[in-house]
Design a protein around this nucleic acid. Structure first.
Lengths: 195, 195, 195, 195
DNA sequence: TATGAATGAGTCTTCATTCAT
DNA sequence: GATGAATGAAGACTCATTCAT
């Protein structure tokens, strides 16, 4: 009852900025989303954004860091596990959930690579992917198997979104994407790259 | 005598614009590339660009159409072929070469989806992909198999670029990517989605 | 117990603001120094500045008044003295010390005249200078002698700073500047303006 | 006759920008003069300024370079002359005219030192002054004589403006200022610092 | 075939200031 | 004595685009 209609929602402004920003960044891209637009949606002034964040890029960075923290944790966990196929599968499984939960940030990263590359999160994301790759692929794996692992990851990033026109509920889709990813990594793990 | 030392170029300005534009678009993204930059690289004025193209988007469209024409032809060819696995494999094979030859346009499309979605080429590209998908996947294939086909395509688009840190010459990489794509489509074709 | 290690300062905030502000104003200029910067240096918030001063200009005014009070006193003293050369010399002598002791405020006034002219202290400073000039120059002195007196004053303001690259300790420099100023005023006093 | 009232003055825009900018910079200071203001006075848009100059600072630089070129030439000329008092006097004489002709740029430099110090012209101006000082003062002159030379220069820069309240026509004022400057340099040249 | 000159709309960002707590 | 949160106005600058020549 306290935070009723007119009440100027307290304290949560920072988070609201992050949410709206992510939504718009994912929908229209980073460059095409202006701070004016974000501010208008929140019914605050542009200057208010600058009270909470130093720059436009800073908003993105903060969102990115918040939403990709689980990947760091996943990697840490995985590094403490035996280096076998079961671990890889479990990593994919958990990753699949992280990607779903993280909301549109992965879609954003996938669809704005050109932009993101010039931003500091470009490197950060690359690092995250490298760490995951280090877990998924065998050292000195043949090229094709490396491709399989990369393919597994980008499929998970882009998968749900590309499937949006297909029928089926989200959980089914997630399962389908996960199945393909596991297949790819399993083949890569098997070694000679199939055939 | 005509194309002598002093004047290295003639009526090729239109093409030169396309080339420089594509290069910059792919490198920095569409929005971050300004017409000023393109003009400067070519040592002409911005106004000159407007002599050859109606708008900035127009430059991109023209590049896109030129470089993706082979896909149209590939689709046309495939539609006249029997609907079997062999055709699919050959389509992937040819597609693989098209992607290589087309230069950075596929990288561009992959990395600027957010931007491209709002542009007219967004729809065009989506259409092209749909037509390819129609050839690669069986009607009413299970979700996982649809994912496999999508995965095959985006792997081809992004593959070479993601592999740029790996060792090996371009032709090897292409072969590796192609192998994975064929594998994926073959499994999808087989039906039950693996296991 | 009151001014112990943990809380290095007490009710001296007002003075600390003045000091930091003057330092920054002199270093970077009035316009280029933002209240944010002042606040950050003091590790307080901008709002805290507004507890102590009504406006940015107000900070400057208060600094100016504090540090130029000695001039008022000097003028008052001089007005009670005989109107001869000895008095003039003594005025210059004392002025020279005031300028040294006042810290960077004179440098600030000299280097920010364009800004200061639009501020209320512009007039105040001009008044101070007028009063001094009234003491230093003879009524109806020839133009050149007026110039000599002005020159004496601005040399004292700017002198030390312009000499910063020359070798010699501050006291020597002060003496040199003072010598020139006295010379100028003496010549002006002598009447016909030399030659 | 050809460039009548309504005609949109051709070609001269660049120069008009420089003139208006200098006028405003000198009147209000660099920071307080906005490009909007300059543009409005010229009845063009801000963007038009950017067609002619890369940045705000660039406008100032170009003005500075144009108007201080004569100093360079003066220094060059002087360096080819015998190093005696006559040369010094002639330098002051010519300098006096340069300062008058250059319009408000010297006033600007004097009154915006704090600003100018952070700009590239800060160094340039300092260099110019150093070269002049090298001509005016004897090597290893006593401090007081160095002060006399500095004093001569800053008196010339600021002089006319400080005299604006005094009666007398500009030419008379110039003569008075020049007389004082020559006096100062002559004394410095004489050696032991007078008395 | 091009250029020189300009515009209008928009960008991100910074600032001094306010006020409820 | 101070802070946290916000605002309104303004700043420098960039962009795609136009048009007379």
């Amino acid at each position: 009852m306290s935070s009723s209609t007119r009440q100027p929602r307290r304290g949560d402004t920072r988070k609201r900025i992050q949410d709206v920003a992510l939504e718009l960044f994912a929908e229209q891209g980073y460059e095409k989303t202006s701070l004016r637009e974000i501010a208008e949606r929140l019914e605050v002034t542009k200057a208010a954004l600058y009270y909470h964040f130093k720059t436009k890029e800073d908003i993105l960075i903060s969102v990115f860091e918040d939403r990709t923290r689980p990947i760091r944790e996943l990697v840490e966990w995985a590094e403490g596990q035996p280096h076998g196929l079961e671990t890889k599968k479990e990593v994919l499984n958990r990753y699949s959930e992280i990607v779903m939960d993280a909301g549109p940030i992965f879609r954003f990263m996938q669809e704005n690579q050109a932009t993101v590359r010039e931003l500091s999160i470009g490197e950060m994301f690359k690092d995250r992917i490298f760490e995951l790759m280090a877990i998924l692929k065998e050292p000195d794996a043949p090229l094709a198997d490396q491709v399989r692992c990369i393919s597994a990851l980008i499929t998970m990033h882009a998968g749900n979104f590309h499937l949006q026109d297909a029928e089926g509920d989200p959980e089914e889709k997630r399962a389908a994407v996960l199945e393909v990813a596991i297949d790819l990594v399993t083949q890569a793990h098997a070694g000679q790259g199939g055939k």
